[in-house]
Design a protein around this nucleic acid. Structure first.
Lengths: 109, 109
DNA sequence: TTCAATACCTAGACGAACAATGTATTCGCC
DNA sequence: GGCGAATACATTGTTCGTCTAGGTATTGAA
């Protein structure tokens, strides 16, 4: 995949996954990979800085929890996060429509 | 618009526009803006470096031409450019499908 | 003459994704 | 009892395309 296309979409994908239920970094990466048929492979160097960014922007809240001897940092969506997610989805729609508008521009059809 | 989403898509959009007929930078920017309903606004700082990149990669060829006292640098798609465009379109499709797969994921359990 | 539009270009700043590396635990395997 | 794979977190430094902001020059309208 062209990783450049990933720019700006990572945060939206994270917010989307967390919006369904509180979850943690490692599981987010797996969830994104799974639902994209393995297309997305969030690296730690992208994932964790993004989570910290979103937390600092108060779009995500977090709490530590230990499960089976493993410490996990769970994230949940804040109200601001819900709004941000909706906004990002709209931006994605507009972007996607824009690209397809150029690609499918009727120069003959 | 979220300019981050633009990453990596600019070259594809340029190649697409040029593929229809030889054209020049200024017109490319206008064409992209028009076909995306004004969503995309290619800045010169993105447009010209991208054109030079594509020319250096031999995906675009160029020739100068003067029209009405204005010098224009026209670009045309090379054979390699056609292949690259097709490849980028497929990558875009895969990316778009991947994103929508995560956004529209069924969590019904 | 002054401004907008046309038409090209570049230098530097910015910032997110990546590779690589580190820590630590649990579990399957033999 | 040892050993690798998977789990789970994190950071450092590099990379590189986009943007801001600046520059040159011509044409045509106010």
């Amino acid at each position: 995949m062209d990783s450049r296309l990933l720019w700006g979409a990572v945060e939206m994908l994270i917010l989307e996954v967390v919006s369904h239920s509180p979850t943690y970094g490692y599981e987010i990466a797996q969830s994104v990979a799974q639902h994209s048929q393995g297309y997305f492979d969030l690296k730690e160097g992208s994932l964790y800085p993004a989570l910290h960014r979103l937390e600092q922007q108060k779009l995500l809240g977090s709490f530590w929890q230990e499960v089976d001897g493993r410490r996990r940092k769970y994230y949940r969506l804040t109200t601001a996060g819900q709004i941000a997610l909706a906004t990002k989805k709209q931006a994605w729609q507009a972007f996607s429509t824009g690209v397809n508008g150029v690609l499918g521009a009727e120069y003959s059809t």
